[in-house]
C-alpha cells in the first residue's frame, strides 16, 4: 500500500504529469463550461406577474452585445417567448434563455445557454441578478497562443539583463573577487552544498544569486541563478538528472524570500492603503518559513529512495531503452565534467 502511494506521488509530482494534467483539465473544463447550460439564481421577488424582461449582456472584450428575452409569468409558470438581439448584425443570438425553474427557498433558477466567451451580466426587469465569466474553445486557443508569445517576450527581456550580469560576473571571476567572496562564505556553503568544492566558480554565482534575491533584485537574481545552475551542471555526473545542490538552489528561489516585498508595497501605495508598510513583518516571517521549509525539504527528501538519483536514473534508462527499441538512436556522446555547456549531446546521455 505504502509503495503505491509513494509511486503515485512520484508520478504526480513530475513536470510531465503536472503539465499534462493542466492542459487536459483546461480542455475538458472549457468544453464543459461552453456546452453546459448556465444557471443564475434569482429571488422570486425579482419577477412580477405578467410580462418580464430578461436581459443577458455579454462583453466579449471587443464589443458588448445583449439579448432581451420577454418571459411571461403566471404564478409558478414561466413562458419564454422569442428573444430579440440588440444591435445584432447577424441573425445569431449570443445567448438563449432556456427556462425558469423553481428551486428551494423561493429561489428561481434562470437557465440559459451561450457559446460566447467573455463577461456576462444577467438582468431581470433591468435589475442585475448575476454576473460571471463565459469561456469557449476559441478563448482557450487564444490563451495558448497569447501566452506562448508572452513567454517569448519575457525570455527576450531576460536576455539583456542576462548578458549584463553574466558579463559582470566574468569580470569578477577574472579579477578573483568571486573566489574571494566564496572563501568568505565557506562555512555556510559547506553546510548547504556539501557536494560543491569550496573553490568552485558555482559558489560565487550561488552567493550572488542569494544576495540579489534577498535584496529583492529579481532582474539580477535570475542571471546569477542560471549561471549557478550552469556551474552546478558541470559538477553533475548525470546531465539529465537534477543533483542535490541544484534542488537546494531551486529551494530558495522558489520560496523567494525578500527583505522587502517591493512590488506589493507599490500596489498597496497605489491603492491608498492607510498603512502601506504593515505587511513587511508578516511577509518576512512567512517568506523565511517558506525558505527554511524549501531548503530543509530539498536536503532531506533527497535521501528518500523514491527521490534518489538512482531512481531517476533507472527511470531515465527505462525511457532510453524504449526509445532505442523504437528508433535506432546514435551512440550517445557523453560530455565530461569539465564542460560547462549542457549541450544536446549531454542530454542524450543515459
Amino acid at each position: 500500500m505504502k509503495r503505491y502511494v509513494g509511486a503515485f506521488f512520484q508520478w504526480l509530482l513530475t513536470m510531465n504529469t503536472v503539465w499534462g494534467l493542466m492542459i487536459v483539465t483546461s480542455f475538458f473544463l472549457t468544453v464543459y463550461r461552453q456546452y453546459s447550460p448556465k444557471e443564475v439564481m434569482t429571488d422570486s421577488s425579482a419577477w412580477r406577474e405578467g410580462p418580464n424582461r430578461v436581459t443577458i449582456r455579454i462583453n466579449t472584450g471587443k464589443e458588448t452585445r445583449e439579448v432581451v428575452t420577454p418571459i411571461h409569468c403566471h404564478g409558478r409558470n414561466f413562458q419564454v417567448e422569442s428573444a430579440r438581439s440588440d444591435g445584432a448584425t447577424t441573425g445569431e443570438l449570443v445567448a438563449r434563455v432556456l427556462r425558469v425553474e423553481p428551486r428551494l427557498g423561493e429561489k428561481l433558477a434562470l437557465v440559459w445557454q451561450s457559446h460566447e466567451a467573455g463577461e456576462f451580466t444577467v438582468l431581470v426587469n433591468e435589475a442585475p441578478v448575476g454576473k460571471g465569466k463565459l469561456v469557449n474553445l476559441y478563448a482557450l486557443t487564444d490563451a495558448a497562443l497569447d501566452y506562448a508569445k508572452k513567454a517569448f517576450e519575457l525570455g527576450l527581456g531576460l536576455v539583456s539583463t542576462m548578458v549584463l550580469f553574466l558579463g559582470l560576473m566574468k569580470v569578477g571571476e577574472d579579477a578573483g573577487l568571486v573566489q574571494f567572496v566564496a572563501r568568505l562564505m565557506r562555512p555556510a556553503i559547506k553546510r548547504l552544498f556539501p557536494e560543491v568544492p569550496p573553490e568552485h566558480p558555482a559558489v560565487g554565482a550561488i552567493i550572488m544569486n542569494f544576495t540579489t534575491s534577498v535584496l529583492g533584485l529579481g532582474n539580477a537574481a535570475t542571471p546569477f541563478g542560471l549561471k549557478a545552475m550552469n556551474e552546478l551542471q558541470s559538477l553533475n555526473p548525470h546531465k539529465t538528472v537534477a543533483s542535490n545542490p541544484m534542488v537546494v538552489l531551486l529551494g530558495w528561489n522558489t520560496a523567494g524570500f525578500a527583505i522587502i516585498p517591493t512590488s506589493m508595497l507599490a500596489v498597496r501605495k497605489a491603492a491608498g492603503c492607510s498603512d502601506v508598510f504593515q505587511i513587511i513583518g508578516p511577509c518576512m516571517v512567512a517568506g523565511l518559513a517558506s525558505t527554511i521549509t524549501a531548503i530543509t525539504l530539498a536536503r532531506l527528501l533527497g535521501k528518500l529512495p523514491m527521490f534518489s538519483v538512482e531512481a531517476a536514473l533507472a527511470e531515465e534508462s527505462g525511457e532510453a531503452a524504449e526509445e532505442a527499441s523504437s528508433q535506432h538512436s546514435e551512440d550517445p556522446q557523453a560530455s565530461q565534467g569539465g564542460e560547462t555547456e549542457a549541450d544536446t549531446n549531454s542530454q542524450e546521455k543515459e
Binding site: T14, L226, V241, A242, M246, V247, T254, L301, E316, A342
Partner: peptide
C-alpha cells in the same frame, strides 16, 4: 537552462 529532465524532489 541546463537541460535537466528529471527534477527529483524539487
Amino acid at each position: 537552462s541546463v537541460g535537466i529532465r528529471k527534477i527529483r524532489h524539487a
